[in-house]
Every structure is written in structure tokens, then in C-alpha cells.
Simulated assay, not measured.
Amino acid sequence: MPSLKDIRAANALINDATAPRVSVWVGGTSGVGKLTIKALAETGASVKIYIVGRKSSEERIKTFTQELNAINPKAEFIWIEGEVSLLAETKRVCEIIKEKEFSIDLLFLSTGYAPLGTREETSEGLEICQSLEYYTRILFTLHLLPLLQKAESPRVVSVLGGGLERFPINTDDIDLKKPGSFSSARGQVQYGHLNSIGLDWLANEYPDVTFMHTWPGWVDTGNVRRGNIDPNSWTGWLIWLVLEPLIKTFSMRDEDSAQRNLFQCTSAAFGGRGVPWKGKPGLSTLQKPDGGLFLVNYKGDCTPNTKNITRLRENAQSKVWAHTQNILEPYL
């Protein structure tokens, strides 16, 4: 595990030459994404940062980026409005970016929230958290891969539950649509596992891009209050009385989380590309320091999780990927 001191020292090496010069942040309007954008801007490097979010976040993000520009005038921020729980909107946003850029160094994906309420579907018929935490992320990646492949140190970081793979994927009901299939616990496990197996597939298809699925640990982002949760319901009271106090008690400091995530976005510790790193390199799901998917937790520990990933590859990956292609094909 790299110490926070070592992580800060590595991040101090980020400059105009080593920073991700063009990055796209989907989910950067709050939580881990927003914290990491701030940490990247505060390096003083010349960077162009695309932030994608809903209309309701626009004014708040404009204020946020103006504050960052006062710290780092070399940072350029570009806001793109989009309701990315919808795959059609995701495609539209990607087309805007592809028209503007030749290459992208970093794609950071952190959309979503714990599905603690009842099942809620988008107008496209997908459970909203699954769309945000899996389908949207894979669609952004597929659309922007040609631009990522043109960069020197391209990286895709999906923030959810990397390294927590423990259970089988329900391949007979991947979208948890059958009566009795969906619950908040099943949904969160299923979506995290789908991320790992989907990104593992892409990492093996595109070895010139560094793919990471990370687990941010406990960070007080306020996301437990998102979704269709009645504050006067048992779930609402449980969040207020138990879950929120636990999160506040055990969460790491925002600044520490930002530095750790910035390290994961930039360090050559993962895949051998990026800001120089003299410490022990992380091992991917292929048990290699380069190539494959890197599963990284909030401390910076990297695990191949060989037993569980191998089981998921053998029992679920081909079915999951075929289903994913079927869902996304109209939007590619």
C-alpha cells in the first residue's frame, strides 16, 4: 500500500508534461469526481477538463470552476449539459466531445448512487442506477476509445467497487427485471461486478489503454440521499439515524480522498504509463504490471482478485458482453 506521503510526493510531480492534458469527467459535479478535479487543477498544470452533468448542476459548477481558475489560470474548464442516465443523451455528449478533440488522456466515470429506494426506470427502460453505473460508463468508453488511443498515456477510471468481486452475476436476469430480483443490495453488487467484467473485456481488447475499476471507500458525498427515497419511510429514517452518522464517522478526509484518486488517475504505478513511480507496481487482472484491468481500493492497493475474476470470466463474461452490446448497439 503506498502511503499518503508517497502519494502526495508522486502527485507533486504532475506538471504540464505529465498531467492528463485533456480529460473528461462524467460524474464530476459532486463527490469523488469533483474532489479529484479540484486536486488536478490545484497542481497548476495546463489542463483542459470537460465536465458533464445535468442542467441543475450548471450554475454550481460554474462557480466551482471560477474558483479553480483563480488558483490555476492555465486550467480550462468546459461544461457539457447532459442527462447521462439516458443512453441517447450519452451518445449526444460523446459526439460533441469527438467534434472538439483529437485525443483524450483521461476518462473518469463516477456517475450513480446506491439504489436504496424502489426500482426506478429511465424512459429507455433501464433501471436508473444500472444505467448510470454500468451502461452509460461502457457507452462513454466505447465512443471515446478512438480518442483515448491517440493519447500517450490514456486511462479509463471507473469508480464503484473494484476489488470487491465476491458473488456470481445473475446472467439469467442481468438487468434484474424479473419479479423479486431487484433490491438495493443485489443491484449494487450486480452493477459493481458488471463494471469489473465489462472493463476486463475492454482491457484485453485494448491493451494500449490503461483501464481501472476503483473502490473509493467511505467518502461523505451525500449520495445516500439520492434516488426516490421517502425521507419519512423506514429507509429514510435508517439513512438519517444509522447510515449517515456511520459515513461521517468513518469517511476519510475529502483532501485525502482527492489525493488518492488523483494518484490513481495519473501514476505509472498502474499500467506503467503516466507520472513516474518508483514504488511497487500494481498487478492487473492478468497478474501483470501492464495490460489488463487494475482493481484498486481507496488505499491504493491493487489486487488481481484472481479466483473471483477467473470465475466471473468463465461463467458470465461472454453472456454479459453479448447482452451489453445488444443494449448499446442502437447508440453506437
Score class of each variant (00 low, 15 high):
L126C: 04
M212Y: 04
T249H: 15
I80C: 05
E124H: 11
I128G: 01
V84H: 05
K48M: 05
T122H: 05
D16C: 07
L40G: 00
R226S: 12
L262C: 05
R225T: 08
Q287K: 09
L194V: 07
M1Q: 10
S158D: 13
V224S: 09
V24D: 00
D254L: 14
E205I: 05
H193L: 11
V47S: 07
L144G: 00
E127H: 07
F263C: 03
A75W: 01
W237C: 15
G192A: 10
R155E: 02
G161T: 12
E89W: 02
I327H: 08
L40N: 02
Q188K: 15
F77R: 05
L148M: 12
T18L: 09
T235S: 12
P168R: 04
K319F: 05
K74T: 07
K100L: 03
S123G: 15
S30K: 11
F270S: 00
T141P: 06
I128V: 06
D208K: 12
R311F: 10
L126K: 05
L126I: 11
E101D: 06
L176F: 08
D172S: 13
A75P: 07
L40D: 01
S284Y: 01
E81C: 15
I80S: 05
V189R: 15
E76Y: 05
L86W: 04
G180S: 10
K278P: 08
L106F: 12
E101N: 05
G82W: 01
I14D: 02
N223I: 15
I78P: 09
S196L: 06
N170D: 15
T221L: 04
G28Q: 04
C129E: 14
V93G: 03
G125M: 07
L40Y: 08
P207C: 10
K248F: 11
V32D: 00
A185K: 14
V209P: 05
N72C: 13
R273C: 00
P289W: 02
E99N: 13
I37L: 06
E165I: 13
A316R: 08
N261P: 04
R166M: 15
N228C: 14
L126Q: 11
Q287R: 07
Y134F: 15
V24I: 08
L144T: 13
V84M: 13
F108P: 03
M252F: 07
I128S: 10
S183T: 10
P330G: 07
S85K: 08
V157S: 06
I78H: 14
L4C: 04
I37F: 01
K278A: 12
K91T: 09
F263A: 04
E255C: 06
T235R: 13
L109P: 04
I97C: 12
S257G: 15
P216C: 03
N308K: 11
T221H: 02
G112I: 01
K98Q: 14
H213F: 05
F270G: 00
K34I: 00
A19K: 02
N170Q: 12
K177N: 14
E76K: 06
T36N: 01
K98M: 11
K248N: 02
R155D: 08
T63W: 14
L116M: 15
L332R: 14
P231W: 03
E95K: 15
M252N: 11
L142S: 01
W218T: 15
L109K: 00
D290I: 10
E76A: 14
N228P: 09
R21D: 02
I174W: 12
W218L: 15
S57Y: 01
L295P: 02
W25L: 03
S233P: 07
I104L: 12
I61M: 13
A258Y: 05
G274W: 00
